[in-house]
Amino acid sequence: MTRRDLREQAHAGALPRRGGGFGRMLADVVLWVAALGGVLCMLLVVLALTAQITLIMFSTGSMSPTIPAGSVAAVQRVPASEVRVGDVVTVDRPGELPVTHRVTSVAAGAGADDRVITMRGDANAADDPFPYPVSSVRRVLFAVPGVASVIVALGDPVVLGGITLAASALVVWAFWPRPARGSRATDAAGEAVPRKADDT
């Protein structure tokens, strides 16, 4: 092997290589999870603006066992004319919390697009005390049990601040330059080959 070959090998070995190990793998996994979380948040914003799909949390068990307390549901706003018996819908009530129950009857309302509906929670023995005149409702698309407490915890300013600081530190650590390894080549005698102009 000529000195020129050794110099070329040394030049190739001087390129920085990413360190391996469990720490690097863990950092990559966390970064991917954070990236996916960001994509999910952006997707939810797009759905909220274009398809009127939002999330609601269930703090009571009136819809158990179909939707137990602590669940989070995706809901979509639809015209009252699309409501059918058996749908689970959220009705907004001025000055009160919204109610999410199953529709038990649908009747004509004051206008052509209005309806008067009665509802009942799956865990309740009777319909709600009063019917609801509505022009639109939020229909439940699907629900995920047990995640409401996680979302509430993530909304805490202290938790958000800690996550932000941890993510920032992780990004800095993951992309901090590592020292090059194997930047000097050795000759057959085991001595370092000095870098000089290429032989011709």
Rank of each mutant, 00 (worst) to 15 (best):
W32P: 06
G190N: 07
G23R: 15
L170D: 08
A12V: 09
V144N: 06
V45Y: 01
P131C: 08
S149T: 11
A74F: 14
G162K: 06
P179L: 10
V30P: 00
V45I: 10
D28S: 07
A34Q: 00
N124T: 00
A27H: 08
A185I: 04
R7T: 11
V30T: 14
I151Y: 15
A174E: 03
Q52Y: 04
V89Y: 05
A167D: 02
M63D: 08
A48P: 03
P129K: 08
H11D: 10
V106A: 07
D127N: 13
L40Y: 08
K196G: 15
R84H: 03
V147D: 11
A180H: 11
A180T: 13
L36E: 00
A166K: 00
P194Q: 01
V91T: 01
L15Y: 12
A125G: 13
M1G: 02
L44F: 12
C41R: 09
A166C: 07
P145G: 14
A10D: 03
D187K: 11
F130P: 02
R184S: 12
G161T: 08
R3P: 05
A35T: 09
P65D: 06
T100V: 06
P129T: 05
R7I: 14
L47M: 07
H101E: 06
G13W: 13
A10P: 09
W176G: 04
A107Q: 14
S105Y: 08
R181V: 05
V30D: 00
D87E: 03
E8N: 06
P98C: 05
Q76W: 04
I67P: 04
L165E: 00
V72F: 15
T100F: 10
A112Y: 12
V91C: 04
S59A: 14
I117R: 03
P16K: 14
P79Q: 01
T164Y: 09
L15E: 15
A74P: 00
M25E: 02
W176N: 05
R138C: 04
I151S: 15
P94R: 14
V171M: 12
S62K: 12
P133C: 05
G111V: 10
A143H: 03
P68W: 05
P68G: 14
V144G: 01
A110M: 14
V89T: 01
P194L: 05
W173P: 02
G21N: 02
A189V: 01
V99C: 00
A169I: 09
D5Q: 11
V134W: 00
A73M: 09
V78A: 04
T118K: 04
T90M: 15
V158M: 11
